[in-house]
Design a protein around this nucleic acid. Sequence first.
DNA 1: AAAATTAGGTATTTGATATAACAATGATGA
DNA 2: TCATCATTGTTATATCAAATACCTAATTTT
Lengths: 159, 159
Amino acid sequence: MKPDTASDTSQPAQVSDDRLRGLLGYRLRRASNAVQADLAETLKPFDLRMITYTALVLVVDNPGLSQSQLAAAMDVERPNLVVIVDELERRELITRDRVPTDRRTYALNATLAGRRLCDQAESAVRQHEARIFGTLLEEERSLLARGLLHVIAQRTGES
Amino acid sequence: MKPDTASDTSQPAQVSDDRLRGLLGYRLRRASNAVQADLAETLKPFDLRMITYTALVLVVDNPGLSQSQLAAAMDVERPNLVVIVDELERRELITRDRVPTDRRTYALNATLAGRRLCDQAESAVRQHEARIFGTLLEEERSLLARGLLHVIAQRTGES
DNA sequence: AAAATTAGGTATTTGATATAACAATGATGA
DNA sequence: TCATCATTGTTATATCAAATACCTAATTTT
């Protein structure tokens, strides 16, 4: 009879991860990582990280929003958002404007340079998406999108 | 004519992230995060993190594999794997066995306790997967799986 | 035998994220 | 009105994962 801890000292020629591959969550994470990595490369020429790109898009699309609103939208802690806003402001892509009716909050606005960079980056991001998802059939793509939405809703209870 | 940096100081009642939602990669990341969070909760009762669970499964399924093989399979840097293996060994879920033919390498093997914990955790993980993906139709699920595989292959060139 | 390579390991750095506490401002209610 | 309470942005700090540099021992190559 084999001992309790069967001390196998023969190394497998090839490591099997079949059991993990059977998990949809595992596949989801790997796919997400792959896309993240490609997106990071896509944004590098613009000196944007994913998180700074996200912030920039949201400021462009929601002129005047406060840091708290932005932090909530990005699901980032307020202290961490400060450094992101600092960076975008330092690069003169956005401005912190005082709001007269409430002197605690800042109204965030994109500068012309910020909007331009955002446009350029978006174009690159579209190409990146086309590169990765473009080879799927339209119907497959839409089913993938629906499936993902379902998964998100399953936990966060979102539309 | 509006100034260069239109200083909008009226905060939007609701922040729109429509542009980001249009990106499949964005949706993919959110879905992945949601599943990760649920999986983390699922594994917490077993005192396993996702990365330690992954390592344990691979050791159980590939008795005798080396730390280098495990690190490669998990796509983790060797130094970082050491602490993972340390933890599993300290908890007596796996053992580091010397290999007579090559005294540099360790052959990793799961103990009986390790295999048992792995089984229990796997059962919980299956329930977790059923909870999240079970409400999809079988066909939707399989299309989601295929779509994800396609995305992974697109970048890593994997089967 | 010397040089190069590999396995495992230690120490340290980086990077992202989370927590605690604070000043300034605004809102609320006795 | 005044005292309390909540919110906004901020600083400093803790935590945690992931990456880098470097080291020793063992093996392989030349």
